[in-house]
Amino acid sequence: MKVGESGNVELLPLVSIFCIVIGCIGVILNTHYLDKIIMLEFLTGGLIGLIVSFYYLDVAILTSIVEPVSTVILLLGSLKYIYIKRSRRRYSSKLPVLGK
């Protein structure tokens, strides 16, 4: 976005801002959990690029180490949540048949 001395356009902030805008729309509009987590990964890539373009290298290293931990926790939680919801729905769909 920054225009340098020789008229060049820096490319890393441009790509990062593009990733953030597209990822924001994608996280809100998708409804399946895995699609949302893939789009969240896309969004975090844009965030790391924007941090690097401000020359905060230590924060960028910390973000890229911590971010897979958060993704793994989200994935394990979504897997267990899908399993619990499916088993409960099957059980409750049998229950009215017994009630009749």
Partner: peptide, 17 residues
């Protein structure tokens, strides 16, 4: 170093996905 850390982290999370 930043590029290598970002690449290893993103590969790890896409493996999990």
């Amino acid at each position: 170093v930043v590029a290598a850390a970002y690449f290893i982290g993103s590969t790890l999370s896409s493996n999990a996905i």
